[in-house]
Computed example of a mutant assay.
Amino acid sequence: MDVAPFELERWFAEYEHDADVMLAESGVRSLPASDFDTDPGELGYVIPTKGAPDVRAAIADEHDRTADEVVCTVGTQEANFLVFQSLLSPGDHAVVVTPTYQSLHAIPESICDVTRVPLDPPEWTLDVDAVAEAIRPETELVVLNNPNNPTGRQHDEETVRAVYDLAVDADAYLLGDEVYRLLAEDPLPPVTSLGDRAISTSGLSKTYGLAGLRFGWLAGPSEVVEATERWKDYTTISPTKFGQHVARQVLTGREAELREDALAHVRANHEITAEWAREHGIDWPDPVGCNAFLEVPASFENSATFCRTVVEESSVVLAPGRCFGDAYDDYFRIGFGLPTAELREGLDRVSTVL
C-alpha cells in the first residue's frame, strides 16, 4: 500500500506546535475533561469490540439503523479507512467529490482507480451529471463529504438523494462522511437512512469539541458492517475505553445541550469572521459548519506563500488550499470554531499582515 503524504498534516506538523494561534483548526473549541465523569473503570478492551450495545443503539437511533449495523471506531478517520479497505480492491473504481479531506481520496487511490469530481466555485455546488459521467461499470463506491470540508458547502437533500440513486443504479455504495452534519442549523437526514447502499461515518470530534476522545463510528448495511469488523481486528480492535465512556454521556443524555452550545458558539464566530473577511475585500461564501474556503489575497502568489507569510510574521496558522489539491492553490481554509478571544486575536494578527 503506497499512500501519498498527507499534505495538511505535514503542514500542521511544521507549524502548529510553535504558533500562537491555530486558525486552521477544523472543529469547535475543545471542551475540558472536567465537564464529564472521567472514570471508565478498568482499562480493558471495550466488549464487544465494535462498541457497547447501548452506545451503538444511541448512534443507530440517529441513523435509522439497528445497533448491529453500527461499528464504533477510533475517530471518523478509522471509520472511513475501514470502509475503503473493506469495499475496494485493485481493479475497482471509486468516485470522490473534491475538494475534501485528503484521506477521502488518498486512501482509495492507494487501492484502486479514482475519479475526482470537483465542486463548482464560487458557490461550490455539485454537478450531479458530472458524478453520473464519472461512474463506470467497475465503480464500487461514491464518496461525498457533506457539509464539505474545506468549503463549508452543504449539499441539499435532493442533491444527496440524486447521488445515492446514481450509486444504486451502478450497484455501488454511497459513503457519506458527515462529521459536520450536526453543525448545520437544520441538518439533513444521515446518508445511511437513504437505503441499503448507503453508509454514514461521523464522530464526536467536530461538533462537540471532543477531538481528543478519538471516538467515531460507521453505520450502514449489515454486509458492510461485517466486512469492516474483519478489518478492524487488524487496526484498533476496539474503540478506546475512555472515549466510549465519555461518548456514552454525550449520546445518551447531553447531546442536545452540547450541540446547542456548539451551534451558538459557531453562530457568533461565523459573524465575526464574515465581518473580518468583508473588511479585507475577501468574498465570504456563508459556510455551514466552522470552516471557510477563502480566496488568497491578490498580493500573494499562492496559498503556500500567503499562509507561510502569515505564520512566520504573525504566528497564526492557516491551511493552504494546495493541501486539498493543486487545483485549489488560490484558496486557504480558515477555521472559526476556536474560542472567540483566540479567534479575534488571530484575525487581528492576520489583518496586520494584510
Rank of each mutant, 00 (worst) to 15 (best):
M1H: 13
D2Q: 12
A4T: 14
P5M: 10
F6Q: 10
F6V: 14
L8Q: 10
W11Q: 10
L23P: 01
R29T: 07
S30W: 12
A33S: 10
A33P: 09
A33F: 03
D37G: 05
P40N: 02
G41I: 07
E42V: 15
T49N: 06
A57H: 01
A58Q: 09
A60Y: 07
D61M: 11
E62F: 15
D64G: 08
A67M: 00
A67P: 03
E69M: 01
E69I: 03
V70G: 10
V71W: 00
C72L: 15
G75R: 01
A79R: 04
N80V: 04
F81A: 14
L88I: 07
S89C: 01
G91I: 03
V95E: 05
L104Q: 09
E109L: 10
T115M: 00
R116I: 03
L119A: 04
L119T: 12
W124N: 04
T125C: 02
L126C: 08
V131H: 12
A134C: 01
A134H: 01
A134W: 04
A134P: 07
I135T: 06
I135N: 02
E140S: 14
L144M: 01
N145R: 06
N145I: 03
N145Q: 14
N146G: 10
N149G: 05
N149C: 13
P150Q: 05
H155F: 12
D156T: 02
V163N: 00
L166W: 04
A172L: 02
L174H: 08
L175W: 08
E178L: 02
Y180V: 02
R181L: 09
L183K: 08
A184M: 05
D186L: 09
P187H: 02
L188R: 08
P190I: 04
P190L: 03
A198M: 04
S200R: 01
S202V: 00
G203L: 10
Y208E: 06
Y208D: 10
L210V: 00
A211P: 09
A211D: 13
L213S: 01
L213T: 09
A219N: 02
S222H: 11
V225P: 03
Y234T: 08
T235R: 04
T235M: 00
T235Q: 01
S238H: 00
S238D: 03
P239D: 02
T240D: 06
K241L: 14
F242M: 15
T252V: 03
G253L: 04
L263F: 05
A264C: 15
V266N: 11
A268P: 15
N269Q: 11
H270F: 15
I272E: 13
T273P: 13
E275W: 08
H280T: 06
G281H: 06
G281C: 00
D286H: 07
N291G: 05
L294T: 02
P297W: 03
P297A: 00
F300R: 07
E301F: 06
E313Q: 15
S315F: 12
A319V: 10
R322A: 14
A327K: 15
F332I: 02
L338A: 00
E342N: 13
L343K: 09
R349I: 13
V350A: 07
V353M: 13
